[in-house]
C-alpha cells in the first residue's frame, strides 16, 4: 500500500476554495475516483510497444506514472479497440457481458453466412473476394458508412439554414456506429439483434443497404446546400 499515498492528489485546503459547490464536492472526496492528470495512458499492444522501442522512448515513458489498463483491454491478438467501441454503444444499463455476447453472436452469424457463400462460389476469384473474417467486415462496414460532412443549423435573418461543414474523425465514427445500431433496431422485433446486425454489417460492407444510403443522402444534401457554405463565416 505504500505507493498509494504518492498518487493521492494534494487535498485542497478547504479555506482556499471559492465556490460553495466545489467545497461540497471536495468534502466528500475521501478517496480518489480517478487517476490525476499527469498519469499517462498505458500502451500495452505489442505492435505499439515495438514502435516505442524503435524510437527508444520506452525508458522515458517507464519513468512516468502510468494508468492501469481497463478491465476489457488485453494485449492479446484478438483485442480490437473498434470492436470494443461498438460493444460499448450496444451496451445499455452497464450490461457489458450481454452486449459482448450479442456482438459476438452477430460476428458468428456473419461468419456462417460468409462461409456458406464461400462454399457456393465456384471460381477462386470469387472466393478471394469474399471476406471471411467478421472483424474485417466490421471495419469495412464502418469505413463505408462514415460521413465526410455534416449539416449544422445556422440561423440568419430569421431563417434556419442547414449549412454543410467539416466533421471530426470522432464524430464521424460515432455517427457511423449510431446509424448502424438504429438501422438494426428499427425493424420488426421478431428477428433477434445478432442476426439483424449481421445483415446490416454485411450490407454496409458491400456498399448497399440502409446505412450507406443514409450517408449518401447526407452527402447529397450537403452538395445541394453548397450555396450556404459561406454562412459559417458570416
Amino acid at each position: 500500500m505504500s505507493n498509494v499515498t504518492h498518487y493521492l492528489p494534494v487535498l485542497k485546503n478547504p479555506l482556499l476554495l471559492r465556490s460553495p459547490w466545489s467545497r461540497l464536492q471536495k468534502r466528500f472526496l475521501g478517496r480518489p475516483t480517478s487517476f490525476p492528470d499527469y498519469f499517462q495512458n498505458p500502451i500495452f499492444r505489442k505492435e505499439d510497444q515495438a514502435k516505442l522501442i524503435e524510437n527508444s522512448e520506452l525508458s522515458k515513458l517507464a519513468a512516468v506514472p502510468v494508468r492501469p489498463p481497463a478491465v476489457y483491454e488485453t494485449s492479446s491478438v484478438y483485442h480490437d479497440p473498434l470492436v470494443n467501441k461498438v460493444i460499448n454503444h450496444v451496451m445499455e444499463m452497464g450490461k457489458k457481458k450481454l452486449a459482448r455476447e450479442l456482438v459476438e453472436k452477430a460476428f458468428e452469424n456473419i461468419k456462417r453466412k460468409q462461409i456458406e457463400r464461400y462454399h457456393l462460389a465456384s471460381s477462386p476469384e470469387e472466393k478471394a473476394k469474399i471476406i471471411l473474417d467478421p472483424k474485417t467486415v466490421l471495419h469495412r462496414a464502418i469505413a463505408n458508412s462514415k460521413p465526410l460532412l455534416q449539416l449544422s443549423p445556422i440561423k440568419r435573418g430569421g431563417i434556419t439554414y442547414q449549412v454543410p461543414g467539416p466533421i471530426t474523425e470522432k464524430r464521424s465514427l460515432f455517427l457511423a456506429i449510431k446509424w448502424l445500431l438504429e438501422a438494426t433496431n428499427e425493424k420488426d422485433r421478431t428477428i433477434h439483434f445478432p442476426e439483424q446486425f449481421a445483415r446490416e454489417l454485411l450490407d454496409a460492407a458491400s456498399n448497399t443497404g440502409k446505412v450507406v444510403k443514409r450517408k449518401q443522402d447526407l452527402h447529397r444534401q450537403c452538395e445541394a446546400n453548397r450555396a450556404y457554405a459561406h454562412y459559417r463565416w458570416q
Binding site: S76, V77, K111, I115, Y118, L132, D133
Partner: peptide, 14 residues
C-alpha cells in the same frame, strides 16, 4: 481447415 478459426497461430495458446 473448415475456415472457422482464422488468425495468427498465437491465438491457439490464448
Amino acid at each position: 481447415d473448415r475456415l472457422w478459426l482464422r488468425g495468427p497461430p498465437e491465438i491457439e495458446t490464448e
